[in-house]
Design a protein around this nucleic acid. Structure first.
Length: 425
RNA sequence: GUGCCCAUAGUUCAAUUGGCGGAACGUCUGACUGUGGAUCAGAAGGAUGUGGGUUCAAGACCCACUGGGCACCCCA
């Protein structure tokens, strides 16, 4: 009896309070995507491991995926990301889809990682993608969708910001520094871990990776140059478009943004939480122009981003930006005065539902204080009492729990008067 | 997958050198037989995460496991 089977490590249990947060995030994501005309879609939760082998990066496939053998002996994977599924589904119907294609999705993903704060093995991710357009203006639109979401949940540019870079720009600069193509990945990783090491260690590590002293100095000044974007036409156009889209204040150029996924080819961006002590990545994305061709489709340009629900949830919680939790979806409760008035209460509740209200009825006769206490704890706004007095007069008592006032009114008027109370703030 | 830290009531935390496990909040009951929140009074609630070991004696010390956190790694 006392033995409880624990939940699987790294999974999450959504009690109504957490479910409300998840739904809130999903709803805000939906609104932002719909504001820009994106269509909702989804892929399978189970995929073959081969789908990810091509482009997702070795680490993700080999060490961070849930892989199982099914009863037929085939290996199946709980999806660790969505973009490969997107690429396949588009490739399969490449000639019948309407372009430019704007799709969004919000669903569960799994990664076999060591859980810690802001990272679980089971999480929800919002994905937004545009395919069929290759332009900085398209990149800007994706960033604008992200910024629109951030704004809608109360994140100001002071609390969180989107940092942008461009892989082609960096490649050109690496080229100019005489860093050969085969060293680019190592250099990217180097850039990625810069703020995690002391300057001395980082430089030593850089030299160890094969950079010359001169190249290292060149790299350092490159990474410090916040105006570098002005030398790159794509980024000049990107920022002009962001300005026009009204989200320029959320975006900043940062040559240190690299991103690990291999399929990005141009613009890359990452939103960070600036409100706390550590910079935490809220969302990330970029342009991937080769992905379709890589999964066997015709070449098709794409740009997109993904946001996990865990970090954003923590950031909003820590900044007091989550909406207050209202336990019940029914703001109205009918009390049950006693056994003889029980069915009358059920009738009243049914009438009010018929009138379009969400109404709960206390499930049994009980002392009124208990019933009122219950209504209060469940966050209800209106409590109805129909006892002997009301029944004799064909009336009902309506109490507004927020103001504490109550009135006894004819029953046919109840629905209208309740609605009036609910519409008051 | 590596290193370090943590685990006591539903929750957040106490418990001297190893010596009878406490408080706050929450919950329940009553003050209040037709009315929630506030206040007051009372009550319930624990094999101290699991399994072993040391000891006359373990919440405390040792080992393993499980879970969580931090840093790597990676990323949402």
């Amino acid at each position: 009896m006392k033995t409880i089977i624990p939940a699987v490590k790294g999974t999450r249990e959504f009690y109504p309070e957490q479910m409300a947060v998840r739904n809130y995030l999903a709803e805000k994501a939906r609104q932002a995507a719909h504001a820009f005309g994106y269509q909702e879609w989804d892929g399978p939760f189970l995929e073959t491991i081969d789908l990810y082998a091509a482009k997702s990066g070795e680490e993700l496939v080999k060490e961070q995926s849930f892989v199982f053998q099914d009863r037929g002996g085939d290996l199946v994977t709980l999806r660790p990301e969505l973009t490969p599924s997107l690429a396949r589904m588009i490739a399969a119907r490449q000639n019948e889809l309407v372009y430019p294609l704007r799709w969004w999705s919000f669903g569960p993903f799994w990664r076999y990682e060591r859980p810690q704060k802001g990272r679980s093995r089971e999480f929800f991710q919002w994905n937004v993608d545009m395919l069929g357009v290759n332009s900085p203006e398209a990149d800007a639109e994706l960033i604008a969708v992200a910024a629109t979401f951030m704004k809608s949940v109360g994140l100001t540019p002071g609390l969180a910001r989107i940092f942008v870079n461009n892989r082609r720009l960096m490649d050109a600069r690496f080229e100019a520094l005489g860093i050969p193509p085969e060293m680019r990945l190592a250099v990217s990783n180097l850039v990625d871990r810069r703020n995690k090491m002391t300057p001395e260690n980082w430089e030593a590590y850089a030299l160890e990776q094969g950079l010359s002293r001169q190249q290292l100095d060149g790299l350092k000044s490159l990474l410090a140059d916040k105006d570098l974007w002005q030398t790159w036409d794509e980024l000049v156009r990107l920022f002009a478009a962001l300005e026009a889209l009204g989200v320029r204040e959320y975006v900043e150029f940062d040559p240190n943004i690299v991103r690990g996924l291999l399929y990005y080819t141009g613009t890359v961006f990452e939103a960070f939480d600036l409100s706390g002590g550590v910079r935490r990545a809220i969302l990330g994305g970029g342009r991937y122009d080769n992905l379709l061709a890589d999964v066997g489709g015709d070449p098709l340009a794409g740009v997109g981003f993904a946001m996990g629900d865990v970090v954003i949830g923590i950031v909003l919680e820590e900044n007091g930006l989550l909406p207050p939790f209202v336990p019940t979806p029914a703001p109205v409760m009918v009390t049950v005065f006693d056994e003889t008035h029980w069915l009358d209460s059920l009738r009243l509740a049914a009438q009010l539902r018929q009138a379009g209200l969400n109404v709960t009825c206390y499930p049994e006769p009980a002392k009124l204080p208990r019933q009122f206490k219950f209504a209060d704890k469940m966050g209800m706004r209106v409590v109805l009492v129909c006892g002997p007095d009301e029944a004799a007069a064909g009336q009902v008592t309506i109490k507004d729990l927020q103001s504490g006032t109550q009135n006894q009114v004819p029953r046919p008027e109840a629905a209208r008067l309740i609605r009036e109370i609910l519409e008051r703030a």
